[in-house]
């Protein structure tokens, strides 16, 4: 607590979350999760369905409150949603009655930014995702991949310190997905925003992250954390090793649930080791 520089951007301290179930029981989505994320870091939360990764993201977003434990940003407890922690949702959550520019301007309207300034900045954010020529379109006139880029531009318009992304590319086809990943990596390098990225694709996590947090189910918890950098990414042997290690962990998490049910949740080819 002494040096400000060492304070993590995001801090998750022993967070548990329990939901009541319809049958009157309770379901533990998260159990004693602890995680610190540094500023400028790109962290992926990877795990099968039911590991609580989206719940954790929503708690950090301030959309849900933890049953116990606490989350904080720059040392300040998170109690409600706020534009300093922008969220990109899996289903885009764009406003269909607004144009592309109108969607990107929304958070700036909420922040009472003057109109000419909004226009100028909206254009800037749209060009960041390569959509500067599509500002006048309606959202429904764009493809899914383009819509997700609008959602990313809208999140950037919050001028957030942290980008929270909840399986943002899982609806995209393989080619679009690769393009979106490349664009996000570029954006991270250019802006150095803290990014927390929820995914159930091993390859996606490996491609973009500084750290991969592997989560397990019943109850949702952190199983292991892997660090990697661009030097590792260029090393085919080390990459294969990492992929195998992650897969072994995930396999243990998935198998007790039965092959068919959760096995399909993890995307990508499992190495045959």
């Amino acid at each position: 607590m002494s040096a400000v520089t060492s304070m993590p951007r995001l801090s998750v301290e022993r967070v548990s979350k329990t939901f009541p179930t319809a049958t009157g029981g309770s379901f533990q989505a998260l159990n004693e999760v602890a995680l610190d994320i540094a500023a400028e870091e790109f962290v992926s939360l990877l795990g099968p369905s039911g590991c609580g990764k989206s719940t954790l993201l929503e708690i950090i977003a301030g959309l849900q409150t933890p049953s116990s434990g606490r989350v904080s940003m720059d040392g300040e407890q998170i109690l409600r949603p706020g534009p300093e922690r922008a969220v990109v949702f899996q289903h885009f959550a764009l406003f269909p009655w607004r144009t592309v520019t109108g969607n990107v301007e929304f958070p700036m309207e909420m922040a009472r930014v003057a109109k000419t300034e909004r226009r100028r900045r909206a254009r800037e954010y749209l060009s960041m995702v390569g959509l500067e020529d599509f500002g006048d379109r309606h959202v429904w006139q764009l493809s899914g991949g383009m819509q997700q880029r609008v959602a990313l531009a809208r999140a950037m318009a919050c001028t957030p310190k942290v980008l929270l992304m909840d399986e943002p590319f899982s609806g995209a086809d393989a080619i679009t997905r690769e393009l979106l990943q490349a664009q996000l990596t570029k954006l991270h390098r250019a802006t150095r925003k803290t990014i927390l990225f929820v995914t159930h694709s091993v390859d996606e996590a490996i491609r973009m992250s500084d750290r991969i947090v592997v989560m397990g189910t019943r109850p949702g918890r952190i199983v292991s954390i892997f660090s990697l950098d661009d030097a590792t990414r260029e090393h085919a042997d080390k990459m294969a090793e990492l992929r195998a290690a992650i897969w072994n962990l995930l396999r243990k998490e998935i198998l007790p649930l039965g092959e068919g049910e959760a096995g399909n949740e993890i995307r990508g080819e499992a190495p045959s080791t």
Partner: peptide, 15 residues
Amino acid sequence: RLKKAARTLGAGRRE
């Protein structure tokens, strides 16, 4: 989900 998104974008109840 749209209401939720609006909250994260800084919208209050009235907005």
